[in-house]
Amino acid sequence: MIRLLRVELTRLRWRRAVLLLVAAAIVIPTIILAARAYETRPVSDADRADAQEQADVELGFQREQIERCLQAPRQFGIAPDNAERQCERRLSYPVDPEQYLYREQLRLDSELSGAGLAVVAVVAVLMLLAGTTYVGHDWGSGSMSNQLLFESRRLRVWGAKALAVGLLALGVGLVALAVFWGGLLAFAQARDLDPSGQVVTDVAQQAGRGLAMIVAAAVGGYALTTMVRSTVFTIGVLFGVSVAGGLLFGALLPDGALRFEPATNALAVVKGEVTWYVEPPADCAVVVYDMTTTDSDRCATQARLTQRGGAVYYGVLLLALGSASAASYRRRDVP
C-alpha cells in the first residue's frame, strides 16, 4: 500500500493540471491576505495630508455656498433681512480631516467570518478540482486499465489514490491556511494589534475545521469522478447540484431547504454554527421585534445549525459517496 501511495503521489506531482491548481491554491489566499493587509493598513502621514487637503476643499466649498447665500438669500429660501445669521447657520457644518481618514482596522475576529471563509472556500474548490482532474485523466487516457494490469487489487488502487488526493489536499490546505492566518497574525503584531488568546484559539479551531472541509472536498471530488469516470461529468453534476439542488430542496422542503443545502452545512462546519431567519407559522400571532424573541420553539424565527449537524451531513455524504465509488470501481468493467 505504501508503494502504491508513493506511486500515486508521484503521479500527482507529475500532473501539470494538478500543479497549476496547487499553485492557485497558494497564490489566491496570498492575494487575499495582501488585499486585506492593504485595506486595513495604518493611516500614514501622506493619508493625513490628503485628508487635510480634502477637508480644506470641503471648507472652501462651504464658504463659497455661504457667500452665494449672502448675495442671493432668496435662492436659499432665506429672507434678506436675516441673511447674515441664517446663511451661516444653515450652510455651515463642521469639517474634520478625520472624516476622510476612515480605515478599517485589522481584526482577526472579523476575518473569521469574512476573508477566512473565502480562503477555505477557494482552496476547497481548487482541491476538489485537483481530485477530479487527477483521476479523470486516468479514465480519459485509458491508463487506468494499464495500472490495473500491474496492481489488480482494485480496492487498494482506489484507496491509494484517495489517500494521495487527501494527503495532497491536507498539505496544500495547511500551507494555504498557514500563509493566510500566519500572515494576518504577523501584520496584526506588526501593527501593535496583538489579538487576544481567545481569538487566536478561534482562528486555530476554524482553520482546523476548514482544513477538514478542504480534504473532504478533494476526496469527494475524486470519489465522484472515479464513479462517473469523467471530469466534465463531475463538474456538470456539481454545477447541477449547486443550481438545481437549491430549487429542488426549496420545492420539497419549503421551510427547511436551507438546512440541507451544501453551502449552509459547509458554513456550519467551518464557522462552528450558522443561523438564519425562518417564517413562523401563521398562528404564531406574536409581533416579533427581536428575531430571537419567541414564545416557543414552534414559533421560533431563527433556525440554527451547529457544527455537529454540518459535520454529520458531510460525513454521511462522503461515506455514501466513497462507498458507492469504491464499490463501483471494484465491480465495473474497466475500459
Binding site: 491508463s143 494499464n146 495500472q147
Partner: peptide, 22 residues
C-alpha cells in the same frame, strides 16, 4: 491499443508502472 498518460514521457509512464510493482 496502448493506453498511457499522454502528457507524461514514455519513460515516466514506465517508471510509474515499474514502481507500482517495486
Amino acid at each position: 491499443s496502448p493506453k498511457f498518460s499522454p502528457h507524461f514521457s514514455g519513460r515516466r509512464n514506465l517508471l510509474l508502472l515499474s514502481r507500482s510493482i517495486g
